[in-house]
Design a protein around this nucleic acid. Structure first.
Lengths: 131, 131
DNA sequence: CTATGTGTATTACTCTATATAGTACACATA
DNA sequence: TATGTGTACTATATAGAGTAATACACATAG
């Protein structure tokens, strides 16, 4: 199965699809320019409604992650331009703050979070040097 | 105003309250043992329904973040026991993965994420050595 | 005991988001 | 022309969020 999703999760299925595709692209499992399964294909494969896939694809296109060619299919965007660097920094900071808050309430030392991040980066997409 | 929330956000208000309280505790702005505003107090202050506050407080108690004493009020839990360290590690890894995926699609280098995290830890709760 | 202030519980209602279902359209290409 | 793309639209069902109003159980200051 190309993609799986948990229908009983609290996070909507279309958002799970979005997150999954973005993660594969970030890990270079989905290379830029490569083609994604068609909406109907995926719908049959995942046994969910085509509209749900369409919603995910539309959001991904809106974010510039994929590109759509009418009548042909959807493809991973070749070249990306980063949004405003300032906005990126703010968003990143917000995400990392959430991580530290969660770590605190789980009793995980901040140093361990730092170590974990380093480790993740090191083994990203099977020891590939991303970014 | 003790707490503010965005009613038009896609994340529910009661979840915003939860996140805010947890962040303040993690940053030691809310010390263990200190009292939180009463449900009705906060409801008037924030001009939202008491049920919404109650829902947030109940979830925070379920997580062991705060403690409730009937007829007296709600207080920040004094001593915490970390959950299973294994589960914590897995959750942390998942959160950090999300961060890296977001960073990738924003065109932020992983090294910068690492630096940003170090910086956040360093200035956590106004240069206090947490954890 | 009484009054007041805690959190809790319950019921009813509205609104929005999610997901499904079915149909129709526009474009590309073999 | 037939088939496979994504898109658009309407209708329906379900779940979650939020409000509203009321009642209950407990603690404590008068």
């Amino acid at each position: 199965m190309w993609l799986t999703v948990d229908p009983r999760s609290s996070t909507p299925m279309y958002q799970q699809i979005i997150a999954d595709v973005k993660e594969r692209i970030a890990k270079d499992i989905l290379a830029p320019g490569s083609r994604l399964p068609s909406i109907r294909e995926l719908a049959v494969d995942m046994t969910i409604n085509p509209n749900t896939i369409a919603k995910a694809y539309q959001e991904l296109e809106r974010e510039g992650v994929i590109e759509v060619v009418r009548g042909k299919g959807t493809f991973v965007t070749e070249k990306r331009e980063g949004p405003s660097p300032a906005a990126s920094a703010a968003d990143l900071r917000e995400l990392l703050t959430k991580v530290l808050v969660e770590a605190h309430h789980k009793g995980v030392a901040f140093a361990d979070v730092s170590r974990e991040l380093e480790d993740l980066i090191l083994h990203w997409s099977g020891s590939a040097t991303d970014e």
